[in-house]
Design a protein around this nucleic acid. Structure first.
Length: 424
RNA sequence: GGAAAGGUGGGUGAGUGGCUUAAACCAACAGUUUGCUAAACUGUCGUAGGAGCAAUCCUACCGGGGGUUCGAAUCCCCCCCUUUCCGCCA
């Protein structure tokens, strides 16, 4: 949610900026919000005046009662009763304005950073960089879903039996590769100064609202109604919510957390070749990095996170490219997002493996995460997060790109973790 | 699942209807003193909303929501959470 003070002060700039998202009603929504805000403040003032008068009169009642002047006290009681009626109707109206204001504020997305390009869809995203060699595979090269069967390392059929589609079973070297990747990612993040967290995999509704999965993405999360809990779609949810309703000291910043978790996504509405094999799963593993930053340093932090993810992909020797998402393709809460895609040689397509975003104060405002700066002023923090990295598509690319007649070659950086260098 | 006790500012914790404007202590910050550090002393020190150029003033907030009352941290009702014990259990 954008802070209303920000809208009051920079309405024109915000409207201009939201155009990049292809968000058409910006001007109307902003002016409606400002209108509601104006009425809200007027009513608040009236309500406060009435309450102030009631407080003052109530004290008089106490005084008169002590002095034994019951008749005077009675007169004031009647006056207060009238004021209360008046206050009640003002408050009802005030409540209406506050609710409509919040409703409209929830529909206004974050303002894109100045470097974000205007655009409608993924086709308008900018390729910032690309590196690594795209391997030329022999004619008989297999897609990963056939390789996993050939070497018996990921069993989709078994997952279907036990749970259903999208819940694969990792076996033998497949399971060990998973564990190795998780440890490799965690250790790399720790070396880069991140503090490891092991969060709960189920969260309450308040946490869902905190990071914005609720109410908009309600149907995308698995839900346990008996206990009113949600399975996390990413570790971002429990980790970022650590800082919900928290007032930090400036000296505590930056906070850098890393967490491994399984992620659960219903992926309602997905279908076709997108979901083949490891491309899209209901349960998968991911290492997530989260930063809580001083507003002046958040873009520097974003670059640092991009550099971190870059170094992981280099060590895994995978060809990848970095995209700066255009306004229309960016998430609702993000101000700037970089996507990382690895090239999956047998499928001959780019697969998204990481999304690194700066939310500026948009999440912090909703979560009420603030800090006191050097001068003692309370301000909203900036929050950032990124995958570093999500496993399944990395596994898909590793299997496809590194297939040889002898077996699947494991990149050198990973061998200390897998303790084998070939899947055969 | 059963029983009991609780939920008060950054922390500990007092407060059973109006002299509460939430005590006191700790932490933090500033100053004085002081070879340094420390200690001692003095002062400052909650959050949010609103009015005002400003000093400042007003309002709300003691887990959440309702209620009683002229007046609620305090009394009543509902809900949530935590702790301890019992049961179950990796």
């Amino acid at each position: 949610m954008l802070p209303i003070q920000n809208i009051r002060e920079n309405a024109d700039k915000i409207i201009e900026s939201l155009k990049k998202r292809n968000f058409k009603d910006a001007a109307e929504k902003i002016s409606e919000a400002l209108q509601l805000d104006k009425h809200r403040r007027e009513l608040k003032q009236k309500s406060d005046e009435v309450l102030s008068e009631i407080n003052r009169l109530s004290k008089e009642v106490g005084t008169y009662m002590k002095e034994g002047k019951a008749d005077l006290a009675q007169q004031i009681k009647e006056k207060v009763a009238q004021l209360k009626e008046q206050g009640k109707s003002i408050d009802e109206e005030l409540d209406k304005f506050e609710k409509s204001l919040e409703q409209i504020m929830l529909t206004i997305p974050n303002t894109p950073h100045e470097s974000v390009r205007e655009g409608k869809s993924a086709e308008d995203n900018e390729i910032v960089s690309q590196e690594g060699n795209i391997p030329t595979l022999p004619k008989d090269a297999l897609p990963h879903w056939e390789l996993t069967a050939k070497y018996d390392i990921v069993d989709f059929e078994l997952g279907n039996k036990i749970t259903g589609a999208g819940f694969p079973v990792y076996k033998g070297k497949g399971a060990r590769l998973q564990r190795a990747l998780i440890n490799f990612f965690l250790e790399s993040a720790i070396d880069a100064g991140y503090h490891e967290i092991q969060p709960p995999l189920l969260v309450n509704a308040a946490s869902g609202y905190g990071t914005g999965q609720l109410p908009d993405k309600d149907g995308q999360m698995y839900y346990a109604p008996l206990d009113d809990l949600y399975l996390i779609p990413t570790a971002e949810v429990p980790v970022t919510n650590i800082y919900r309703d928290v007032l930090l000291q400036g000296s505590q910043l930056p906070i850098k957390n890393v967490a491994y978790s399984s992620c659960f996504r219903r992926e309602a509405g997905s279908y076709g070749k997108d979901v083949r094999g490891l491309n899209r799963l209901h349960q998968f593993d991911k290492v997530e990095i989260v930063q809580v930053q001083h507003p002046e340093k958040s873009y520097q932090a974003l670059e640092e996170m991009v550099a971190h993810v870059t170094s992981l992909l280099r060590k895994l020797e995978l060809p990848f490219r970095v995209l700066r998402l255009c306004g229309g393709d960016m998430g609702f809460t993000s101000a700037l997002t970089y996507d990382f895609e690895v090239y999956s040689a047998a499928q001959q397509r780019w697969l998204e493996v990481s999304s690194v975003s700066n939310f500026e104060s948009f999440q912090a405002n909703r979560m009420k995460c603030r800090f006191k700066d050097e001068t003692g002023k309370t301000m909203l923090v900036h929050t950032l997060n990124g995958s570093a990295l999500a496993l399944p598509r990395i596994v898909a690319a590793l299997l496809e790109n590194n297939q040889t007649p002898e077996g699947i070659r494991i990149p050198a950086a990973l061998v200390p973790y897998t303790k084998f260098d070939l899947i055969d």
